[in-house]
Design a binder for these strands. Structure first.
Lengths: 133, 133
DNA sequence: TTCACATTTGAGAATGATTATCATTTTCAT
DNA sequence: ATGAAAATGATAATCATTCTCAAATGTGAA
């Protein structure tokens, strides 16, 4: 009936692995494969359960990878909640936009459409300079 | 060995249904359910196969619905390839941005990051005026 | 430390979307 | 009408994810 979160070895291992791979989009099986050989490694069910819990806590963001045909999870960098991002469709590189680049658009859209952009969910897709060549 | 596309009754039915529902995100089973009672209705396998074909042709865009736990397909409106869109996270409403609102940002980003935004894939998420209240 | 109990885990079954298989049917150019 | 290529349907196979439930573990109190 309480709402206590037990600290188990499995959860620690999972979270540590995620934190070591903050920049990656991990599937449940990615994590399984990497913890596989360790003592008291978590089962796939535990991994899925804990990932969903972390999503609810806002620690992870859940996505879906067409290519992998599976859900992927990425670490939510709180510092990134303030600015927008460009994501290259080819190499996946993420560029953090300086605020001033976007602020004009935000206020224009607010005035004209009375629409409040969500800069956590919004991603601007395109092709980065390296991939153009 | 040829690349001919045969016109079959099943494909006509599927495409007609999609065109009647241009504004919706359809799953394969949505289509199945609606063609179900008709003569020579397509099987689920045919629907999946044809949907993927339409995606390859650029007629549909494939998405993934967390809620439905299934792939969804939406009609690609060619006219929308020229401008950006706002999408309300609550009601799903889509607002078509007038070009001038975005053009500033595009050139700023191009200059500063040498990044070319893809206005087909990019969607700006947020909350629309109606949902604010 | 030990107890009582809520929570978590693991193994495997169940689910459900999507894809593959392959024999049969249909399309269409000739 | 014929034949080759393409499409279809029924169903099996695949595979990610969720469910089930007995057993194990974490936690706070005594």
């Amino acid at each position: 009936m309480n709402n206590i979160e037990y600290k188990t070895k499995q959860r620690k291992m999972i979270l540590e692995y995620i934190e070591k791979n903050k920049d990656k989009q991990l599937t449940a099986y990615d994590i399984l494969q990497n913890l596989y050989l360790k003592d008291e490694n978590p089962s796939i069910a535990t991994i899925y359960r804990y990932l969903e819990k972390l999503v609810k806590q806002g620690i992870l963001k859940k996505n879906y990878s067409e290519k992998k045909n599976a859900a992927t999870f990425e670490y939510v960098n709180k510092a990134c909640a303030n600015h927008y991002h460009l994501k290259c469709e080819k190499c996946g590189r993420i560029i953090h936009l300086s605020n001033e680049v976007f602020s004009d658009l935000e206020s224009k859209i607010d005035k004209k459409y009375d629409f409040e952009i969500d800069n956590v969910k919004t991603v601007l897709y395109g092709i980065c300079n390296e991939c153009k060549n």
